[in-house]
Design a binder for these strands. Sequence first.
DNA 1: CCTACCGATCGGTAGG
DNA 2: CCTACCGATCGGTAGG
Lengths: 213, 213
Amino acid sequence: MDAPRDETRRRSDGEQTHAAILEAAMRLASIEGLSSLTIGRLAREIGVSRSGVFAHFRSKQRLQQETIAAAREVFEREVVTPGLDAPEGLAQLEGFCEAYLSYVEREVFPGGCFFAQLLAEFDAPDGEIHDEVVTFQQGGAALLEGLIATAQQHGELDPNVEPGQLAFELYAALELANYFSTLHRDPGIVDRGRKAVRAAIANAGVRDAAGSS
Amino acid sequence: MDAPRDETRRRSDGEQTHAAILEAAMRLASIEGLSSLTIGRLAREIGVSRSGVFAHFRSKQRLQQETIAAAREVFEREVVTPGLDAPEGLAQLEGFCEAYLSYVEREVFPGGCFFAQLLAEFDAPDGEIHDEVVTFQQGGAALLEGLIATAQQHGELDPNVEPGQLAFELYAALELANYFSTLHRDPGIVDRGRKAVRAAIANAGVRDAAGSS
DNA sequence: CCTACCGATCGGTAGG
DNA sequence: CCTACCGATCGGTAGG
């Protein structure tokens, strides 16, 4: 009992502060954008001096990059992992979409999906963050396309449907559900996204063996 | 010929500068966001002093509001007016969606749709601009719903389809076409939006007299 | 993790 | 439309 209890706080104080800074940075960035993050603002939020924050990162650029990396872990934990839990095929495709919508609905980030914010913020400006957003977006699209192709191989979706096109339609429903539920402070709007996902998937169902005529 | 030629430049120099500032403000805001607009940045862009810019507006808030108003006029001229040109009914609904997609494709704003940028930037933060974005978004949704309802009355769309739901699906396709084409610097992606619009509308066609069973 | 500092820039004002 | 200025804040550095 009085053995080294370091296990209850395995992290050093420095590591705890580091994590607390990133936690606040993700929250703030989801609301006001990664560009609006300032070291002074974070310092006030955490209750340390500006240099105290700065010491943990050596530039604002690194702070931004570490914030993105931390958000990626949250996304992995809250969306990707639970979203792929269902058995391969159509169920997994539906499960992934539902995992994203649930993540929006539960308001994991107070300003809505961190990466939807990042997409709109860095779609136009050139730079390293833009490139990271491109990579993240392509990863998400590739994941959806893979799930669609697998469902087609299982005979659960029309094989004539182009995976890239259906992925676009699902992606669109997920993203807009995020923006609208945040804008209207109404997680109930996520249901519109659910119906849109259902409609797009149903429209690509095997029932109508669509011909390209 | 040598009569007062004021008509060739009806605007006073002051009015011209004012317009030039708003023009630059719209361009910059579409790329980096309205929050990233600074008076000094605009002054450099236009080639006047910071106070020279400031004199035209009396606060940054007014600059932002006038920039939004100017962008609204562009949107009206480039999307709404041409978009409602087609005859009432399904053609008008399709025409409006096409007008938006064309406006994205033509890169009317260098950073993509000004209001899509504004939606993502001010969906979470409270304030006057947030409220303006809510109003603009509701206007766009109401417009789409009206066009859908009219097409239903003309017997061109399934009357059992909920206008709000179909409007959401179209809105989603339009918005994502904007974000993706900007992100990937590829206006060709707009075609994915076109196909998504066509699919959503076809899915709501009269052919399948969907039962709520 | 702190205080103390750097030059640059912010929104805004005064006075012309 | 200008110069000249205000206090506040920015990212970053020095030195402890």
